[in-house]
Design a protein around this nucleic acid. Structure first.
Lengths: 344, 344
DNA sequence: TTGTACGCGTTATCAT
DNA sequence: ATGATAACGCGTACAA
């Protein structure tokens, strides 16, 4: 039960040549006579010779492949970002290996190690909600593994990063709700240690401040598993609405949390009054929701493209890059029905 | 810009041992003194030694990794199937490499070749809508590469396959619409050469036949790009409704086609009358649609699990397996509002 | 109990 | 213009 493939050695044997001659002929070396070259190339094509990339990786310490580490592929933001990454990668001859962490720190470590040890030329990483300790990443990065972070970045690791303007996105969303007349605006978000969580919280707070609304700690709820643990979201929602100071509007962070939140509210009979909400989401389906969902949308595809371009820049740079920048892209706020429900 | 890692040779040098001693010590061989063993293991741990899987793959011709080839990861059915695959794979110590074809035959070939040449121990494949020629897969399979097909199977290749009962799913959906009083039921589906397309069409036809409704070729529309080409779907829908014999209900195949169809109908002012529809979909969001979507749901997670179990069976079998079976799993039809709209 | 040598597939270096 | 050999990292048959 073993997959056997043709090697350079087989060709050499058949043609009574040495492996080095065959190798050179296949690579079109100028020191091989065109006669031999043709002989080899034709035969190789005939028996469908494919160089063994494993042997190449072992020798060259590179694989022309890059690895993607994301929390969930079943998340519109990430799947769109992956599409962007692929579009650039294929154009430059890189293969793409996708893996998901399911927001688990342990799985993330395993996947990253796996990618690194498989001679991935570089990694595009968006860390899991659980990831609090990035030392293992820092370690790999310091040993020379090219990494570009996107969306869920690690601030402390000095490399290229691609994010959208989370502060502004949250600020705009909050402002929008305030302008609609809502005063008790809750923020349900991912785990507290994520950089994007902090930025979004800052945007939310700043908007409240600018409109002289007192910040209420109790209205901010964290989901340490980034929405993967439905109970966690549900408990947050229920507790939010059972407090004496129940919210009249919510701004939620991330695709998963947003959809779980809506689903919980829909099925929770204890939540009777109409709530306005707006969420960070890149889903294509939000228009079909009822009410249609107001969203903060990130330029996922573009972010993926940019991240891949930066990664290639690191990989193919002759000398180590010293100066890194963080590319910040604009998010877009799209107002639909869910945030426009008139307050009673 | 090169990622250097610790090798067995480094350890051997540091400890004044031979590489083979180190190798054996690390693998816990009984022929190594426990003193040496401890020395090596401790030192290896200290400097965080990781065996190089590339070297191992080259040597052992296997990688303890399997590859997944699907059309789209941003498709609930496939992302759920992948979750099922991962759950089994991790339990058995296999790594999982995900790749998507975007319904492109060319991309599929490239990805499959890539996986095969990367010493994947086996492949889980769901072919693209464009895939008409499976000879390259057949070739690889005959040369010993373990392959299990799921959902989008290739009937002609003799191996394990996992599908859901597409005939029955389509039959039940069609019957349901008929019982609601609909007579002019269209079927908008994926590319005509796909096995699942054929089966679903058969189910649809049989239901019509059983209820004495004449089959109308013009009410069946194929999307050769499986819904990836939005214009293709739109044109099909528009042409369907501009014919004199416009449908009063639709049954659609696949997540992508279903959502694109809904979106087109929603935005197409020329489609005025209310249409009943039910679609093959595994999305978690269909309840939030307006109207909520009636679906035929496949047991995606279970299908992924089963496929992975079968693949492991092939990979780990001592002797070539001769007798293969096709596992058929039940789909579930879930009635919501979209197929219950009273006929005017 | 430990060391030496080989092979997995390839290319670069150094002969011839 | 072509061939022989070493090296990438590992495990193992064989030697000591």
């Amino acid at each position: 039960m073993k997959y056997e493939s043709v090697t350079i050695k087989d060709i050499a044997q058949q043609l009574n040549l040495s492996t080095s001659t065959v190798s050179r002929a296949l690579r079109g070396s100028y020191e091989i006579s065109s006669k031999t070259k043709k002989l080899v190339v034709d035969y190789a094509k005939k028996i469908n010779y494919q160089p063994n990339p494993i042997a190449l990786s072992l020798k060259e310490r590179r694989s022309h492949s890059i690895g993607i580490i994301v929390p969930e592929i079943a998340n519109s933001f990430f799947s769109q970002a992956i599409d962007g990454i692929e579009s650039v990668a294929y154009k430059h001859g890189y293969h793409v290996n996708i893996s998901q962490t399911h927001e688990s720190f342990e799985r993330e470590m395993i996947n990253v190690q796996h990618m690194a040890s498989r001679s991935m030329d570089g990694l595009l990483v968006s860390v899991s909600a659980e990831t609090n300790d990035s030392s293992y990443l820092k370690n790999l990065h310091e040993r020379g593994l090219p990494i570009v972070f996107f969306d869920r970045i690690i601030d402390e690791i000095d490399t290229y990063k691609v994010v959208c303007d989370n502060f502004k996105g949250a600020y705009n969303a909050t402002t929008h709700l305030i302008k609609q007349g809502y005063k008790n605006i809750a923020h349900i978000t991912s785990s507290s240690h994520l950089f994007i969580t902090k930025k979004r919280l800052e945007g939310y707070k700043k908007a409240l401040e600018d409109y002289k609304i007192k910040f209420n700690e109790n209205l901010v709820r964290y989901c340490d598993h980034g929405g993967m643990d439905i109970e966690e979201v549900r408990n947050n929602i229920i507790s939010l609405f059972s407090s004496k100071n129940a919210p009249d509007a919510i701004i939620s962070a991330g695709d998963r949390i947003t959809t779980v939140m809506i689903s919980v509210m829909k099925n929770q009979s204890s939540i009777k009054k109409k709530i306005a909400y707006i969420g960070f989401s890149n889903s294509d389906l939000t228009d079909m929701f009822s009410p249609s969902l107001s969203v903060v949308r990130q330029p996922a595809f573009e972010m993926g493209k940019t991240a891949m371009e930066l990664l290639i820049k690191i990989i193919e740079s002759k000398r180590p890059i010293k100066e890194f920048e963080t590319k910040t892209m604009e998010s877009k706020i799209i107002i639909k029905e869910s945030s426009l429900i008139p307050k009673k």
